[in-house]
Nucleic acid binder design. Structure first.
Lengths: 206, 206
DNA sequence: CCGTAAATACTGCCCTTTGCAGTATCACTT
DNA sequence: AAGTGATACTGCAAAGGGCAGTATTTACGG
């Protein structure tokens, strides 16, 4: 069944999509919307990928595709198979990879000594505001959660555990950015922090 | 100067490496080691990429390459150019992209209802232990920081700000995982949390 | 002085993933 | 009847990742 130009072991992305298919059948477009809404916060994938990956699942026998019609416009709806559920269960046994973070804002803070204090301030402010916007989205989802106004009430507990993580992280980011802004307030330049005490910033095993 | 198969606007990765080159000349191998040590924590790139990217910097006139010899073994040492420094400064002006997180462990927690409580417990435990190990590494760097035992003492302030972020995030992750473990202790199964109160887990704007 | 393990210094190859542009149709409003 | 936004994709080029493979140099023990 495996062709020469395709790895045969399903990836994390495969299993993440299988996880969604385990809940119900989805068209690719709906799948993409759902990923944007929740899964994408900790397993971000380009929409383009979400149109390719289900085809691989079908090729591997982990899902089935059915062509439906909305008027004259075709759409493909995917459903999980028994083998798909088995694969998903086995995947939960394998130890997860460590988290991986891409944070361009922090790169700019890290290399701030190639620019001005004003640039550093702006970048930290953007980081704080971005975290605020993301927190608004998360708080909105938390409010829906509390009201029981969710698509999968039987998954409220797992949704809540995941949402708590996202809120914690985003709050930590916002708090750090504001802490950093107040710390750099006394710096003379990006290359000269003046009397700033780096020891106070990182107390031993605080 | 731009060839047909290469975009002419340097990427975040380009500028991240330029940032390192702004500190001193590096061979690719040293660059890779340095990325593993600090930059890679918030801008992770495969080592393979770190051998290709500097060549693009040279092609774009942002860096220069010089071939040196260690006995009979050649090595390439890269240095930033004036245009490279200008590009870096201008890049610091552009608003940073939002952070992006890949967290396979959380995906497994999120889809825990396709598996057993035991699997969920194991995955949360792995997450906590992974965070602990990463915290050890970060604490070690913090201790070196405090002792002034660092490669770039003139960058101690920026190093400290970045290190604080990483410590905050990792501590938040470890704390969340242990919180989650204690919360699921009363669950009857991954699909039935029993009398567990999701409202208590996510209080309004806590 | 010799053997060996670890560090240094890469390249090739193939696959995955992203980003963006392009092409339609459908649903709903004005 | 026209227009906007949502639905439903595909193609293509560039970016990125993972792994195997090839050498030389250095450090260290025996």
């Amino acid at each position: 069944m495996s062709t020469s130009c395709m790895s045969d072991t399903p990836s994390t992305t495969s299993h993440a999509l299988l996880g969604l298919l385990a809940l119900q059948r989805w068209s690719t477009y709906e799948l993409a919307k759902q990923v944007r809404r929740s899964l994408g916060w900790f397993w971000p994938r380009a929409e383009r990928k979400l149109y390719d990956e289900p085809k691989r699942l079908v090729a591997a026998g982990l899902a089935t595709a059915s062509s439906e019609m909305t008027g004259a416009r075709p759409r493909t709806v995917y459903a999980i198979t028994a083998r798909g559920r088995t694969s998903l269960r086995r995947w939960l046994d394998e130890p997860p990879a460590p988290p991986s973070l891409e944070f361009e804002g922090l790169v700019k803070v890290f290399f701030a000594d190639s620019g001005t204090l004003e640039q550093l301030r702006r970048n930290l402010t953007t980081i704080a505001e971005t975290a605020d916007r993301r927190l608004d989205e998360l708080e909105a989802r938390a409010a829906e959660n509390r009201g029981g106004d969710v698509a999968f009430p039987q998954r409220l507990h797992l949704n809540t555990i995941a949402l708590k993580y996202e809120l914690d992280q985003e709050r930590a980011t916002a708090a750090w950015a504001r802490w950093a802004l107040s710390e750099i307030a006394g710096w003379r330049s990006t290359t000269d922090p003046g009397a700033w005490d780096h020891r106070r910033a990182l107390p031993p095993s605080s």
